[in-house]
Every structure is written in structure tokens, then in C-alpha cells.
Nucleic acid binder design. Structure first.
Lengths: 234, 234
DNA sequence: GCACCCCATGTTGAATACAAGAATGGGTTC
DNA sequence: GAACCCATTCTTGTATTCAACATGGGGTGC
């Protein structure tokens, strides 16, 4: 676990800040300074700045010249574009999988998603994680590492709103149903049907996301934090 | 020109190092230290490290824990994967353009590529730039900024070998012919034909790239440096 | 009462200083 | 002569210091 990696502190701080954004502890348009954050995390500004600039390049943060940092406000057009990119990549992955004659390495996914209603996960945060894993696994199974990398990055970028989707029970059920159906179609190499289903599956998420308002974000913030403290148990 | 941008030095150094890699001044597997590079560029290690870590995350450099930096060796499998991602993105862009009924914003491209043989550019480096611009412009015209961003990044990543393609005259001619043909197909909304042509166009580049050996790289290095000094005139 | 100006403070950008451990070379021993 | 061990040097990771300038508030002039 504690090997001796390069840039350990910066990496840790990077993950921590990103979590704070995803958990709504740092809200869009919140402002802060390097010194304040450095003190809060108990590190110097050097590794902190490394993390901040990384997050800036990834589109999470903005910095004003000698006038402090702020969390980027939500850009729903951008989320839309990310969802379209997601559709493009995932459909391509499914098509490639369906073209392959050899056995597909999807055993782990079958174990998670082809289960009875009683065995299904119910905790929203956990389901969001499983959902991410499902889609990432499909793309990775297609075998192009560069595509997987891009897909993993975009997965992170939509995580903050994707999580909200699973606060609604019917969305959880739909997810389980559609993942199971999609898996079966892929395993039987039904390329066209699988693509159609996948497109509609992702588009549904995209449409749910469009309904999100800033008011909902504040509500969700409370919910997520309750869930968060319960889960982390500390 | 000299506004007061954030992180000016780091950005400058970043571009400079990247150019050195693309121009084969820094060769794959070359090793160097932060101190040496900082002295060479006349900056301190702080902005330099920012640039180095950025290049590391982009896959150009590696760093050993307290044991120096090195330029990543060529990974031809990765180039293949990047070309496949490129095909995926660009074909999608062309399809979207063909679906659009309104006039397409491709006037600039027509001006550059629908020209007589006499008006064609001949300098390899310049043609490589034009080729990049052509493909990036197509993707940007499709209108998804996130897709454009990913495409721009992958364009940079294959630049180092793509340039070599245009050292051969017949490849230059083919590029002009195919770009012109592709543009005309898009303007007439011939989606299927355009996609087929584009796929074959990119695949040809991809296959040329596969022929590249490390021996060729050393030859190309000399050529590029000659061209480079001639062009830059300093 | 209002607008404007100046100065103190705060902020990031960059340079320097310090710490920890990896690599290297020389000396010693078998 | 070869292998091994130890100390020194070198390299990156992190903290601290210095510099330039944006910002905000208080005071002053009208």
C-alpha cells in the first residue's frame, strides 16, 4: 500500500480535493485560496498547487491572476457533450465486442448484474460505483487503451451529476434491467439491438441530468452528505 | 502579446520541451535531470516541474523516484490505438455534418484544399500543419467541444510520427487529392461515401506509420532539423 | 453625501532552501 | 581479480521565502 511513489502528497491532495467537489463540500462558484487549503490539509503550497493546476486543466477549477481560486460553475451544455462522447465510445466498444468470435471477458459483469431482485444493491453511492464499473468494463473489454483512458476521464467528469440519478429508485431498477438485457445481447452478439439499447440507456441518463436544477443540487448535497457520513463511519 | 497570464513561465517551458520532443532534439529514452533542464532554460525548478509533470501525464515523459527523467520510448501499439480513436471521432464528425441541412462552415477549408496542383504547398512541416488543421476543423465543425478537445489532444500525440508521413511526395499528393474529394462529398451530404473515404484515408496514414522503424527515426531527425533551422531562420 | 485616490493587505507566481533516499564509485576483503 | 560494502554525491519531493500585483477599505476633497 504505502510504496514510495513519486509525488505522493500531490496525488493524495488531488484525490481529496476532487472528492470534496464530488461530495458537494466544495460547491460550484465557491472561492478559496491556496494558503487556506494548504493549512486545512496540512501540506505546503507546493504539492497543493500541483493538485490545483491538475484540476484546473481537467476543468474543475478556475484561477484568477493573484485573486484566488474558484470551483467552476456547472455547465450543462458540457455535460450534454460529455454524454454524447460517451455514447460514441460505448457504442463503438459494444460493436467491437459483438464482432469478436472468441469468448468475451465479461464473467465479472455477469456475476454483478445477472442477479435476482433480492440480490440487488440498494445504496445509491454503491450503485453509482457499480454503474461506472459496468460501462468502463465494457469499454476496456473492447481492448483500446487510449479509448479506455478517454472514457475513464469523461466518466469522472460526469460523476458529480450521474450520482444524483441513483437517488431515485425507479432509475436503479431500470439500470439493473437494462444492464442485464444489454449483457445478454452482447453475449449473443446481437450488435444492432445492443447498440440501440445502449444508446437509449445512456440517453435516458442524459435526459434525467437535464432536469437537474441548482435547487436540486442543494437538496442532493444534504442527502449525499448524510449517506457519506453513514458509509464512511468515522 | 505580453499580457499577464497565469503560470506564464510554466506554459512557455511546457511548449518548449514539447517542441524539443517533436523535433527529435530530445530522443526517446534520453535521460535528463530537472536541474540541468532548468539551467538550460534559465528558469527555476518550480515552473519546470509543472511542465514536466504535465508532459508526464500526457504520456511523453517518465520520472523515476529520485532517479531522473526520461523521454518515453515509442509505443507503436499506442499509436495504432490513437489512430483508431481518431477514425472513430472523425467519422462521427463527418456523419453529423452530413446530417445537417444548414450551410456548413467549411469555407476556409475549401480555400486551402480545393486548389490547383500549382497552388499546393510543398514544405513538409507546413503540410503537416495544414493536414492537422483540416482534420481538426472537420471535428470542430461538428460542434461538440469535448470531442474536439479529445481530438486535439490525440492530434498532438501522433504529431511526432505523422510529420514523417509528409516527407514522401506521393503521400502529399494523396493527401491533397483525398482532402478535396472528401470535402466535396461532405458538401453534397454523401455521408456513406465520405465515411468510407475518410476511414481509408486515415488507415493509409496508420499503415505508413507502421512501416516506421527506429532507423528511419534517426534519418528523419536529421531531415527535420535541417528543415527546422531553415524555416525558423535564426 | 458621493466619488475618487492611495495605501495596506492578501494573493498567486517563481526562486531558493532543506530533506530523504537512490545511484555511483572507490576501497577492501576473500 | 572479482565481489561486496560503505560513504559520498546526486536527484527528486517538499517546505519556505521572496516578488509583483490585484483588491478592498478608509480617508479626503468637492
Amino acid at each position: 500500500m504505502s510504496q514510495q511513489p513519486a509525488n505522493a502528497l500531490a496525488e493524495q491532495v488531488y484525490l481529496r480535493i476532487k472528492d470534496e467537489i464530488f461530495d458537494f463540500h466544495l460547491l460550484p462558484s465557491d472561492r478559496f485560496t491556496e494558503t487556506a487549503l494548504a493549512e486545512r490539509y496540512g501540506v505546503s503550497r507546493t504539492p497543493l498547487r500541483d493538485a490545483l493546476y491538475r484540476l484546473k486543466r481537467e476543468g474543475y477549477l478556475e484561477v484568477g491572476f493573484r485573486s484566488g481560486w474558484s470551483v467552476c460553475p456547472f455547465d450543462f451544455v458540457r455535460f450534454d457533450e460529455l454524454y454524447d462522447l460517451r455514447i460514441l465510445i460505448e457504442i463503438n466498444a459494444v460493436e467491437r465486442l459483438c464482432q469478436r468470435e472468441a469468448d468475451l471477458p465479461l464473467a465479472a459483469l455477469k456475476k454483478t448484474w445477472l442477479v435476482t431482485a433480492a440480490e440487488r444493491e440498494t445504496e445509491p453511492r454503491r450503485i453509482a460505483e457499480l454503474d461506472e464499473s459496468f460501462h468502463c468494463a465494457l469499454v476496456e473489454a473492447a481492448g483500446n487503451r487510449e479509448v479506455s483512458r478517454v472514457h475513464a476521464e469523461l466518466t469522472e467528469k460526469i460523476r458529480i451529476i450521474r450520482r444524483l440519478d441513483f437517488l431515485k429508485e425507479q432509475r436503479v431498477d431500470a439500470t439493473y434491467d437494462e444492464h442485464a438485457k444489454l449483457l445478454r445481447l452482447i453475449l449473443r452478439r446481437k450488435s444492432t439491438e445492443a447498440s440501440i439499447l445502449l444508446r437509449s440507456h445512456i440517453t435516458q441518463s442524459k435526459n434525467e441530468v437535464r432536469k437537474i436544477t441548482l435547487h436540486m443540487l442543494h437538496e442532493a448535497r444534504a442527502t449525499m452528505q448524510r449517506v457519506s457520513t453513514k458509509t464512511r463511519a468515522r
